[in-house]
């Protein structure tokens, strides 16, 4: 049943937990992702003091997925650290985008003035 569902909808995210381990250790499988998201997300998650370990690997050059490991110190479930990482990264992007746009506008108006 699960297989049929997976066939219809391409998988985006899977969570793998070793048998017997608690919620603090999870490997996420991110499909169709590479260093672009992997490394930036790893940085954001490692900035969280609750996180003991965070790393990723590209399983094989011809497979477009990454294994993304998150281990927390126990207080926080790994899923929440992962979610916080994504939210933080989103916040960074938002700020970078608005700052960048403001800077472009400023440059353009300044340039127009000197042209006149």
């Amino acid at each position: 049943m699960g297989d049929e569902e997976e066939k219809q909808q391409p998988r985006v995210l899977q969570m793998v937990r070793a048998e017997g381990s608690d919620k603090s250790c999870v490997t996420f499988v991110l499909h169709n992702e590479d260093h672009t998201l992997g490394n930036s997300l790893r940085y954001m998650i490692m900035k969280n003091p609750e996180v003991e370990f965070c790393g990723y690997s590209i399983t094989h050059p011809s497979e477009s997925k990454i294994n993304f490991r998150v281990q927390t110190r126990g207080g926080l479930p790994a899923v929440e650290a992962f979610q916080k990482g994504l939210e933080d990264l989103m916040g960074v992007c938002q700020h970078v985008l608005s700052t960048f746009k403001a800077s472009v506008e400023e440059y353009k108006t300044k340039n127009d003035e000197t042209m006149e």
Binding site: E33, L37, Q94
Partner: peptide
């Protein structure tokens, strides 16, 4: 925006 889209996609999936 593409990077934001990636974050968004995984947040929704989560």
């Amino acid at each position: 925006k593409v990077l934001m889209g990636k974050c968004q996609r995984f947040l929704e999936e989560l």
